[in-house]
Measured scan of single mutants.
Amino acid sequence: MLDDRARMEAAKKEKVEQILAEFQLQEEDLKKVMRRMQKEMDRGLRLETHEEASVKMLPTYVRSTPEGSEVGDFLSLDLGGTNFRVMLVKVGEGEEGQWSVKTKHQMYSIPEDAMTGTAEMLFDYISECISDFLDKHQMKHKKLPLGFTFSFPVRHEDIDKGILLNWTKGFKASGAEGNNVVGLLRDAIKRRGDFEMDVVAMVNDTVATMISCYYEDHQCEVGMIVGTGCNACYMEEMQNVELVEGDEGRMCVNTEWGAFGDSGELDEFLLEYDRLVDESSANPGQQLYEKLIGGKYMGELVRLVLLRLVDENLLFHGEASEQLRTRGAFETRFVSQVESDTGDRKQIYNILSTLGLRPSTTDCDIVRRACESVSTRAAHMCSAGLAGVINRMRESRSEDVMRITVGVDGSVYKLHPSFKERFHASVRRLTPSCEITFIESEEGSGRGAALVSAVACKKACMLGQ
């Protein structure tokens, strides 16, 4: 009897593995994704193909990295998701002549009506938060230079001027797309009239992360975010950046690689679950690469896999709870928690219980395998993109072996128990001629924006502006 049951459990697990095998990517698959990513990057950089390229390769006008001589107080704003952060950054000489960066910050959550109302409502709310922060720190009387981390696709015309191309991540505030974001912020500050600010720089969160990590390690020339969304930036040779005049030196390019796949480059790798996630998203047909990796989508992918296993009578005796059938019910943090389970399955059992399920031991094991399959594919897909960037940098610099540091931020990278190990191992397999160091950014977005502002202020002083 026991043997029969054991055989049935083994057969069930084997069927589960057959279904989950769809998520496995072979090294040849990853090399294919990497080569296609490089081709799209090239198209994004070139003037004649930029418009139709899915990977936009947006110039950021960040050319210099901090040298350690900029000092002063800077205000930093960070808008990239449902939370908005205001930070005071003091850049100065530390002990023994070292450079020191001290920060104080406060988080504000953005109400739904500000995210989806008008641009005026959104930026009025942001300036209200700045006003509140300055009151708390008794700094209303000071006109501070301000660095703005704005983590949406922007076409820069200068370091302090950028046109919002399109909202992502659930934002829909009308009247912002096609307009200068810094102008919208300046107008809102003017409307309030109770404080003055000098907006000197606007950067993407990947750029802010790279600059913040450069402060720790001067070989950091790539910034990457794996959180709600997924994106990367890197220092490109100016001669390859056709959208900006000049051939000397390097400029940081914001790849906006989340949109890779929007022209069909990933079609052969998309599964039924991916198509369902895409169809029910706020932007169907867009940001397809990001939807395979980002935390906004990972939990939902797992939920759809679990429903398939229920329908195949391989999980929960073929019956799903009402909660499990509800879109968004299986949160991405559950994926991390399930994979963090120590082996007694308590954590998995508790999560499934909150979803109205009474799982068996085998159910718990199957749910864990589903989570591992989805998150491992995410790590491997992400590795193909980064390997594409790094191999490109090595080739354009004609280096036999390139040493490089990548600064990384984002909740999936930082909080998932195995993502970074799987990701690092896969990147290294795909970049055999590179020695890569990964560092995690601390308060990256805010500190990085302030350091970019410090560079901009120093330049302005040198130019006598």
Rank of each mutant, 00 (worst) to 15 (best):
E14A: 10
T431I: 12
W99P: 10
K190M: 08
Q323P: 11
G446N: 07
V16C: 09
R333E: 10
E120R: 07
F171K: 02
N180Y: 00
D4M: 08
T116C: 10
S54E: 08
Y108R: 02
E70P: 15
Y61H: 07
K39L: 10
D160S: 06
G170I: 02
Q38P: 04
T65H: 15
Q337L: 10
G294L: 01
D409S: 06
G448V: 00
E331F: 06
N166K: 06
L270Y: 08
E96L: 11
P417F: 08
G81C: 05
Q38T: 10
L58N: 07
A232E: 01
E440C: 13
Y349W: 14
M139G: 05
A449K: 05
T228M: 00
S100R: 10
D29C: 14
S445K: 00
L304D: 06
F148V: 07
R428Y: 10
E157L: 13
R392I: 13
T255Y: 01
Q26C: 12
E256T: 05
N204G: 03
H416A: 13
K32C: 12
I293T: 01
V406N: 00
M210Y: 02
V226Y: 05
V86G: 03
K291G: 05
G94D: 09
A10Y: 13
T437Q: 13
F171D: 04
F334N: 10
R325Y: 11
G81F: 12
D42P: 05
F423I: 13
R43G: 05
Q286W: 06
N83R: 10
S441G: 12
G97I: 10
L292E: 06
V302M: 14
C434T: 08
D278V: 05
T342F: 09
N391Y: 04
V241N: 00
L243F: 07
S131W: 05
M37S: 01
E112I: 11
N350M: 05
A370V: 12
E93A: 06
L20M: 08
R327H: 15
Q26I: 08
A10I: 10
L276W: 14
M87L: 03
G246S: 10
A173C: 05
E48S: 06
A119C: 04
E322L: 14
S109Q: 05
I366M: 09
R403T: 12
S375P: 02
L266V: 08
E395I: 15
K296H: 13
L47D: 04
G246K: 00
A119T: 00
E70A: 10
Q18C: 10
L314C: 14
G223S: 05
I126G: 01
G229C: 05
S426H: 14
V401P: 12
T405R: 13
R275D: 15
I163C: 01
G294S: 11
A6F: 11
R345Y: 06
D267Q: 13
F133N: 00
F171A: 01
L184T: 07
G299E: 07
V335I: 13
I404G: 04
I110G: 05
S212A: 05
E120Q: 13
S174H: 05
D135R: 12
T342W: 07
K346G: 13
D311E: 15
T168F: 01
T354D: 11
T437I: 10
E237S: 07
E256I: 00
F423E: 10
S281I: 01
A21K: 02
L266R: 03
L88S: 05
V427I: 12
A450L: 02
V374K: 12
Y215G: 15
K291I: 07
K190H: 00
E95I: 08
R192L: 08
Y297K: 07
M462H: 13
V62C: 05
R192H: 15
R5E: 15
A378S: 09
D160N: 02
Q287H: 12
V427S: 15
P66D: 07
S360C: 12
D205T: 00
M87P: 07
S383F: 03
D278A: 11
T342S: 07
R303G: 05
S453T: 12
H317E: 07
K143P: 04
M235I: 07
E112M: 11
G92R: 14
T362V: 12
V277T: 02
W99F: 14
V244I: 08
H424K: 08
N254F: 03
E265K: 08
